[in-house]
Design a protein around this nucleic acid. Sequence first.
DNA 1: GCGCGTCATTTTACATGTCAATTAATTGGC
DNA 2: GCCAATTAATTGACATGTAAAATGACGCGC
Lengths: 157, 157
Amino acid sequence: MAEGRLQRELNRRNPFETPEQEAVLNLLRTGDLILNRFGRLFGEHNITDSQYNVLKILRDEGQPMPSLGIAGRMVQVVPAITGLIDRLEAKELVVRRRCVQDRRVVYVEITPLGTKLLAELDQPVLALHKQMVGKLSQPEVKQLSRLLEKAREVFSQ
Amino acid sequence: MAEGRLQRELNRRNPFETPEQEAVLNLLRTGDLILNRFGRLFGEHNITDSQYNVLKILRDEGQPMPSLGIAGRMVQVVPAITGLIDRLEAKELVVRRRCVQDRRVVYVEITPLGTKLLAELDQPVLALHKQMVGKLSQPEVKQLSRLLEKAREVFSQ
DNA sequence: GCGCGTCATTTTACATGTCAATTAATTGGC
DNA sequence: GCCAATTAATTGACATGTAAAATGACGCGC
């Protein structure tokens, strides 16, 4: 598969070999930048993205949840949850309670302090979400979601 | 409007608060899943995403690069590069060479073994890129790139 | 009512990412 | 020339992510 000089020069100008690669790398890079920005916001409140996600899941649920229930709603693998809960507990944003009926299960519950922190973050987070796609029109935002959901179908096969 | 797919996937009980939030979370989740898949591919060859990226950058450059030069092309921060190079060097995929003119600078060079590994990965990586957006038509793939690039404009202001 | 498989969680080992501080070498101002 | 500021790279402390194995508790089938 010999590459001519012209093609090499074109490749040099456009680092992407295919539109698919371009889309995937665009996606990963954009995600990195967004995560970075959220990390900065959360850092100002002394928590991390993952810790925020755990708190948010607990608030959405409205009641204590087992660790696996939390893990099921996150992308991460199960063992990572333990450390996350450890650090959240150390900051008194959640508490662990052993289930009485099934002593294998550990319920995690958000504390008033955790709820308060979340409430403080609600507006800034919503604003940042809007800002991250602020260059897109409303139809474009929905189109982006649609394309991402469609792309993700390969994972559910 | 019916419940979004992401919402169902995450088994949430409350809908997203805004389309912007939905798009951003869709983006982050899709990126995570894709990274995961690439991680598995690279893992089969005993390297990681980041290590692959370093090797790719070195091959693209075509000549030894200083650490800062490598860092400049990655999203990561400088200190992370040191460990990356350490592990790549341990696997004999790159070598370090101290610059003679400026002894602060360390040049990193890809070895024949590193080049060979990259060559083995070229086809699988390209195939995986295609597969990751395999549910999208060609125009949709380009549309996705366009939307992501447009969204990213907020970062360059 | 016992044993074995399953389940929820944790532990361990390792790679990575961040920030802040350090080391080593160079450069610029005087 | 000399000292201070700058630069390249590294180190250390911490949070996170992955995989694989260990722990402890349940529960079904006989």
